[in-house]
């Protein structure tokens, strides 16, 4: 029973991580890169010729995607150890 309980709190925590990370994923790509791109284009990435929305759409979102996956890997490895389900 103990294991079952631990597993369900492991799963709940996993779902929280997922919703936060996917929230960021949605905001940088669909938010900054598509829906609010024109508003952001009024500003420039400091020191460069990039309109901000354009940068998010063609560069920034991809960098954020990479970071998101590595953050997820780090969080989950920690969580696996804490709940003693790591390999």
């Amino acid at each position: 029973m103990q294991i079952k309980k631990s597993n369900s709190s492991y799963w709940r925590r996993n779902l929280i991580y997922l919703s936060v990370l996917l929230g960021v994923w949605f905001v940088v790509s669909f938010g900054c890169g598509i829906l609010f791109v024109d508003e952001l284009d009024k500003y420039h990435l400091p020191g460069t010729g990039f309109p901000l929305g354009f940068w998010f759409a063609q560069q920034g979102s991809i960098y954020v995607f990479v970071v998101l996956i590595f953050v997820y890997v780090w969080l989950m490895n920690r969580l696996d150890r804490k709940h003693n389900v790591d390999e």
């Binding site: 996917l22 790509s29 598509i34 759409a57 063609q58 979102s61 996956i69």
Partner: peptide, 25 residues
């Protein structure tokens, strides 16, 4: 991308963003 300008973002984000879904889900 060269001929569609900013609209070309759909390929860039579309073909990379899927990996976040793959890794997480």
């Amino acid at each position: 991308i060269s001929f569609s300008g900013r609209d070309g973002s759909r390929f860039l984000m579309g073909w990379t963003g899927g990996y976040v879904l793959l890794a997480l889900l």
